[in-house]
Design a protein around this nucleic acid. Structure first.
Length: 196
DNA sequence: TCGCAGATATTCT
DNA sequence: GAATATCTGCGAG
């Protein structure tokens, strides 16, 4: 099958964030498969980005970002929410892409069960996405190129006209110049999002 | 339909 | 002890 390899992730973070749109995120858990198409992502560029966790130096929590690309960086915030990131750029560069939203494609019923909700609210936020796919900190450091448990596949692409760019969300603590950086990418018209 | 405040646990100072 | 890359519920319009 076509799990995306390290060569895809080991590039410029903004490029990876942009090209991740339209890719399929697949999760295998307890013999069942759930998946969804990525429609929103944000880039966090460690060294020069005050919004990135790694900008304040290496800690035990963000150590994964300093490792090789193609690895999952999962962390906890607000006491109840997990978030899924993918490490990018060559090893030693603490950069990552935060996945903010997906459109469910397989295992929708199971996701609704895990979320206790359905429809558009199913996985249109970083924490919702993790809950829908049963992602928790146990997957921190997981190798996404192995094709096990959690990985990315080719699915479809989006033309530039369908992709919007803008400032990132929830990083008011960052320096103004980083706050305003248009490093968030999302699909303006997925086409079938309102179908359900 | 929109905007605001509370919740909850891990991490860092 | 304080802060956090959020979500949900509630109340008013």
């Amino acid at each position: 099958m076509g799990a995306l390899q390290q060569s895809f992730f080991g590039r410029d973070t903004l490029t990876v964030a942009r090209e991740l749109l339209g890719k399929k995120l697949v999760r295998a858990f307890r013999g069942r498969v759930t998946s969804g198409m990525v429609v929103e992502a944000e880039a966090y560029i460690g060294r020069t980005d005050s919004a990135c966790h790694a900008s304040r130096g290496r800690t035990e929590r963000n150590a994964v970002m300093f490792g090789p690309p193609g690895v999952a960086y999962v962390y906890f915030v607000y006491g109840m929410h997990s978030m899924l990131n993918v490490v990018t750029e060559p090893e030693g560069e603490p950069c990552a892409v935060l996945l903010r939203a997906i459109v469910p494609t397989e295992g929708v019923a199971l996701m609704e069960r895990r979320r206790g909700r359905g429809g558009r609210e199913l996985a249109d936020g970083p924490a919702k996405l993790c809950q829908a796919l049963a992602i928790d900190k146990g997957l921190n450091g997981h190798d996404l190129t192995s094709g096990e448990k959690l990985w990315f596949e080719e699915h479809r692409g989006f033309a530039d006209g369908q992709v919007s760019r803008g400032p990132r969300v929830g990083i008011s603590y960052a320096e103004p110049e980083d706050r305003d950086a248009p490093w968030r990418y999302w699909v303006a018209e997925p086409g079938e999002e309102r179908g359900v």
